Simulated scan of single mutants.
Amino acid sequence: MNAPTNPKAFKQWQQNAENFTDVQIQTSSGHTIYANANILALASPVLERMLEHARRCSSNSRRQIKVLGVPCDAVLSFVRLLYSSKWRSSDKEEVEEMEKHGMHLLALSHTYRVQWLKRVCEAGLIVSTVNVIDTLKLAKWCDARRLYIKCMVVLTQDLTGVQCAESWRFIQAHDPQLELEILQFIQEKDLRMKRMRRRKEEQGVYMQLVQVLECLDHICTEGCTNVGPLDVDLASTSRGPCGSFSTCEGLQQLILHLPLCSKKLAPGKCTHCKRMWQIFRLHSSLCARTEFCKVPLCKQFQMRKQEEGKGDDEMWRLLVKKVAFARFMSCLEKTKRTEEVWRKAGKCGDSSCRSVTSSQRRK
Score class of each variant (00 low, 15 high):
1 M>V: 09
2 N>H: 06
3 A>V: 06
4 P>I: 06
8 K>H: 14
9 A>N: 12
13 W>K: 03
14 Q>N: 02
15 Q>R: 12
23 V>N: 12
24 Q>V: 15
25 I>K: 13
26 Q>T: 05
30 G>W: 14
31 H>A: 09
33 I>Y: 02
34 Y>W: 08
38 N>L: 13
41 A>V: 11
46 V>P: 09
49 R>I: 03
51 L>H: 04
54 A>T: 03
56 R>C: 01
58 S>M: 06
58 S>Q: 14
61 S>D: 13
61 S>A: 13
62 R>Q: 09
66 K>A: 08
68 L>S: 15
68 L>W: 08
68 L>F: 10
70 V>F: 07
76 L>Y: 06
80 R>W: 09
83 Y>M: 05
84 S>N: 06
84 S>M: 05
87 W>P: 00
94 E>T: 07
95 V>E: 06
99 E>R: 15
101 H>Y: 14
102 G>E: 04
104 H>K: 04
107 A>P: 04
110 H>L: 00
111 T>I: 03
116 W>D: 05
117 L>I: 10
124 G>W: 13
130 V>E: 15
133 I>S: 05
136 L>W: 06
137 K>M: 13
139 A>H: 06
141 W>Q: 10
144 A>I: 01
148 Y>K: 11
148 Y>A: 07
151 C>L: 01
152 M>Q: 01
154 V>M: 08
154 V>A: 07
164 C>E: 15
165 A>G: 12
165 A>T: 14
169 R>Y: 04
170 F>D: 10
172 Q>T: 00
174 H>S: 15
177 Q>V: 12
180 L>F: 07
180 L>N: 11
181 E>Q: 08
183 L>Y: 10
184 Q>N: 05
184 Q>R: 07
186 I>L: 03
188 E>I: 03
188 E>S: 14
192 R>I: 03
193 M>V: 09
193 M>D: 14
195 R>F: 08
200 K>A: 10
203 Q>E: 13
206 Y>N: 11
210 V>Q: 09
214 E>R: 04
215 C>K: 02
215 C>N: 13
215 C>E: 12
216 L>N: 00
218 H>P: 05
221 T>I: 06
222 E>G: 01
223 G>F: 02
226 N>V: 09
228 G>L: 09
230 L>I: 14
231 D>Y: 15
231 D>R: 13
234 L>R: 13
235 A>R: 10
239 R>A: 05
240 G>Q: 08
243 G>E: 08
244 S>E: 12
246 S>D: 11
246 S>C: 00
252 Q>V: 02
252 Q>I: 02
257 H>D: 06
258 L>Q: 15
265 L>S: 14
267 P>K: 10
275 R>N: 15
282 L>V: 03
284 S>P: 14
284 S>G: 08
284 S>F: 10
287 C>R: 11
295 V>G: 02
295 V>E: 04
298 C>P: 11
300 Q>A: 07
301 F>V: 07
301 F>D: 04
305 K>W: 05
306 Q>C: 06
307 E>F: 12
309 G>Q: 00
310 K>D: 03
321 K>G: 03
322 K>G: 09
322 K>P: 03
327 R>L: 02
329 M>R: 13
329 M>N: 08
333 E>N: 12
343 R>Q: 11
344 K>A: 01
345 A>E: 09
349 G>V: 00
353 C>E: 09
353 C>R: 09
355 S>N: 12
357 T>Y: 08
358 S>W: 03
361 R>Y: 08
363 K>W: 07
